[in-house]
Design a protein around this nucleic acid. Structure first.
Lengths: 209, 209
DNA sequence: GATACCCTTGACCATTTGATCAAGAATTAT
DNA sequence: ATAATTCTTGATCAAATGGTCAAGGGTATC
């Protein structure tokens, strides 16, 4: 009987620790260089592990990448999920925008990882985009639509409003090099958050009579 | 005397034609796969040219990439350059936003090429960002500031307003896969443009008394 | 129509890189 | 203790890929 490569059956402490180390290193490398640009050697070096050892935990480079995406996808949705239909619209949207700005500030690497994946046609997360993401957005757009119908915010297309929020907030993570270059300094995240809130929300206020 | 590789001295018709063919093919390939992901073979195949012949026109892969970026960088600035200090602020900004939306629609590949370059730290166009781009933006921010001082538009940070315009307009090119997935269909560029104008400009109107 | 330069390519090379393997070290279970 | 399993790695491989070379085919100019 030929020897077939054995994979561990159980999940040991060492596995948990090393997989975590690998994913951490992989986020650095993939977010900086993209899938094709990243090399297994780089990830192995950054996780202080030999390449064969790394490949013992994740058989293929692609497996690391997919695991990494899945590992953070649901986190990404969380702030939108928390948009509360019962709350005050402008407060809720402000909270959502602030949360997204803070995610960009706290974890720009994850943001760049997604940006890169989507930029290249989202081959790995197509199902996520067309499934969970699409459905959650549809649900929240209904909420926004109901706010509009109730005259609580100005009538704007909810889908495009959400796209605008995503675009602007993630811009500060994904294009930080450009932002810093144009400002001539490191961007001040507090000032950015304040400005973004004004720009995106001011137009939603219904005029007072 | 050893034979040293001779490069053409003049610019012939054939050179002009082939360089153009190569850049066209390269835009396809680089925008789809990024610098590292793209291969010289792919570009050669798409320009219907042998690899050595392609490398006769551009010695290195990087040379194609840089030429491509330079080839389109100044186009990218043009709409902002046209922002007219003498014009009506909201009309001028609307024109700028519309122009950017139409660029995203007409040439999403160029947009993705830049997005990818900036996402990866802009190693090739750092000077452009810190030079021409920064100076043009500074100039136009002064214009916006003067409109604010004159009470013609609401007081918002001009830099972040420009970032928001860039972010939103380019989102439709760079993240079109996500936009289409969330909408469940091909995005309608007219509807998008209308929505974006509303979202970005409504908040800039000064309240009427 | 000869001459000089430009254009084109098949064959090739060196390096990088994703992945494998066999064998030994460490850990866990009995 | 010892057997079974998991963990680790140096050596190696095959494929992909950026780039070279020498030689032959075209084109423009005189």
């Amino acid at each position: 009987m030929p020897h077939t490569k054995a994979k561990p059956v159980v999940n040991t402490r060492i596995q948990a620790r090393n997989k975590e180390l690998i994913l951490e290193a992989a986020l650095d490398v993939f977010s900086a260089s993209g899938f094709r640009g990243a090399t297994v050697d780089q990830i192995a070096a950054k996780s202080e592990m030999s390449k064969p050892n790394l490949l013992y935990y994740f058989r293929r480079k692609e497996d690391i990448y997919v695991a990494l995406l899945e590992h953070t996808l649901s986190d990404w949705l969380e702030p939108l999920r928390e948009l509360n239909p019962e709350g005050d619209p402008l407060t809720e949207l402000a909270r959502y925008i602030s949360a997204k700005m803070q995610m960009s500030e706290a974890n720009p690497k994850a943001s760049r990882l997604f940006a890169n994946e989507i930029l290249h046609g989202a081959p790995m997360i197509e199902k996520f985009l067309k499934g969970p993401l699409r459905h959650l957005v549809a649900e929240k757009c209904q909420v926004i639509q109901s706010w509009i119908a109730a005259g609580k915010i100005a009538p704007v297309d909810p889908y495009h409003l959400i796209f605008a929020i995503w675009a602007v907030t993630q811009h500060y993570a994904d294009f930080s090099v450009q932002v810093d270059a144009v400002l001539g300094r490191r961007e001040d995240s507090r000032a950015a958050e304040k400005a973004v809130l004004e720009i995106l929300l001011r137009g939603l206020q219904v005029k007072q009579y």
